[in-house]
């Protein structure tokens, strides 16, 4: 029954999107975490999605789920702020702010939550279709 595979596929997408929501939450929470050196500063994190290749290669398998291949840190330049009065300022009076773009993160968050909702609805309609199939021929 290939309809049962829909649950696997939608479930993998839901877990991938929740990883994406997690990284967004972490980025937003640390958007203002300053530090005194570029190495210690928080960098924005993003998940990398990929199709589940082991399933894609298997014969007769059209449905492909999503994998989170890993989390990468953004290469965007950090923001240097001249603030000699800050307790974490280095010897030149600079503090380093993370390269988190709050607007981008908000857009990412909306996109992730919409994708999550879509996959929940897909699983829900698959459930309804299966229920109808189970009730097949029971009416008079």
């Amino acid at each position: 029954m290939s309809l049962f595979r829909v649950f696997d596929v939608a479930g993998s997408a839901m877990s991938a999107q929740s990883v994406r929501l997690n990284t967004t939450a972490s980025n937003l929470a640390n958007a203002n975490s300053v530090s005194s050196s570029a190495n210690e500063t928080y960098k924005a994190r993003y998940p990398v999605f990929q199709a589940q290749l082991d399933q894609a290669n298997a014969a007769q398998n059209e449905a492909v789920g999503v994998n989170v291949a890993g989390i990468v840190e953004s290469d965007a330049p950090l923001v240097n702020e001249f603030n000699p009065n800050h307790p974490l300022a280095d010897e030149n009076g600079y503090v380093y702010r993370p390269n988190v773009n709050v607007m981008e993160e908000m857009a990412n968050m909306i996109s992730a939550s919409r994708s999550y909702q879509t996959n929940v609805q897909i699983a829900d309609s698959a459930k309804k279709m299966l229920n109808k199939t189970l009730a097949l021929g029971q009416g008079t």
Binding site: S2, R20, Q50, A63, V64, N119
Partner: peptide, 29 residues
């Protein structure tokens, strides 16, 4: 036709699941 629709549901669900996967090509039956 029930079986074919079932397979199509599977293919479309995998398209939607991979809506954010880079390089994924949408398929249909």
């Amino acid at each position: 036709s029930v079986g074919v629709r079932e397979r199509r549901a599977e293919v479309l669900a995998s398209n939607i699941a991979n809506a954010d996967t880079p390089g994924f090509k949408a398929k249909d039956l």
